[in-house]
Simulated assay, not measured.
Amino acid sequence: MTDGPWRPTLLLVHGAWHGAWCWEKLTSVLRAEGWRTRMVDLPSAGRQSGVQDDARTIRAELESIDGPTVVVAHSYGGIPVTQATAEAGNVAHIVYLAAFQLDIGESLLSFSGAPVPDQPGDLEAVPEDPVALFYGDVARPEAEEAAKRLVPQSTRSFADAVTQAGWHTVPSTYIVCESDQALPAQIQEKLAARADTVHRIASGHSPFLSKPVELAALLAAIGDSVQAHMNGRTS
């Protein structure tokens, strides 16, 4: 690969209970292939922050990136990414990785058919048996180490509704994780119907840990496609 004038930066946005640390294995592969990557730590992980707070964090990071960006959102991270990318001028593509690609007026709870409390509680504890839920196809020692790094998640972030949706105007790709125990594939397929393109990977909920090379290759292919499109527009 060689850098072109419009080669995008990849901004990776983690899901609930996680942090930017979860992308480290994937970013080492991507950077070895010459990709520029950025990550954020969402305030809703460990603090009583909501979707808008997370979206502001994402927008601030986007504003610090010079040039076009492909935003990769995992799981819950799809919600603030959807919110944030509606106002960001440098987002060329959104990738939803087993993520909630919600529409305006939807929250994680409402989309899931769960009641939305008027006064959300403080923090949602880390789920029971996170190894099985999130890391079922990750080597056991690595999965157990990852589980130790999880933190309580703001309950408010699950209740907050999306007020604007970037994927209405920004091209999007959905990556279905076919063996996902946290967000079942049949639910992902419903969300994926909102994306412009759909790919599938034979993995659990966290392919950035279980299949980083395969996921990196897929993200690189998406990034190359975005670059080709941007170069075509500017040639």
Rank of each mutant, 00 (worst) to 15 (best):
V116P: 05
S28A: 14
A143F: 03
T234C: 11
C177G: 05
R31A: 13
G46T: 11
A45F: 02
A132T: 14
E24D: 15
V71F: 07
A114F: 13
V29F: 11
L102M: 05
G46A: 10
Y96V: 11
V81L: 06
V51H: 01
V95T: 08
D129V: 12
L11R: 03
G15L: 03
L183F: 14
E214N: 09
V170Y: 10
D118Y: 03
K190R: 15
Y174H: 07
S157H: 05
C22K: 00
I104A: 14
H14E: 04
Q227E: 15
E106G: 05
A55P: 01
F111A: 12
A202V: 13
D118Q: 14
S203G: 04
H168M: 12
I175Y: 01
A99L: 02
L10S: 07
S203T: 15
P141I: 13
V226C: 06
W35F: 09
T155W: 00
Q119Y: 08
Y96R: 09
D160W: 05
T2Y: 08
L109D: 02
Q48R: 15
D224I: 00
W167D: 09
T163F: 02
L215H: 07
A221W: 05
E63C: 03
R38C: 12
K25Q: 15
W35A: 09
V176T: 11
E124N: 12
M39Y: 00
V13W: 06
T69I: 11
D66N: 10
V95N: 06
S206P: 02
I187S: 10
A202I: 09
L97A: 07
E128N: 13
N231Y: 03
N231I: 08
R31D: 15
Q164N: 01
D160Y: 04
G105W: 05
P117M: 10
A99M: 02
P171D: 05
I94Y: 07
A146V: 07
R36L: 11
P8S: 11
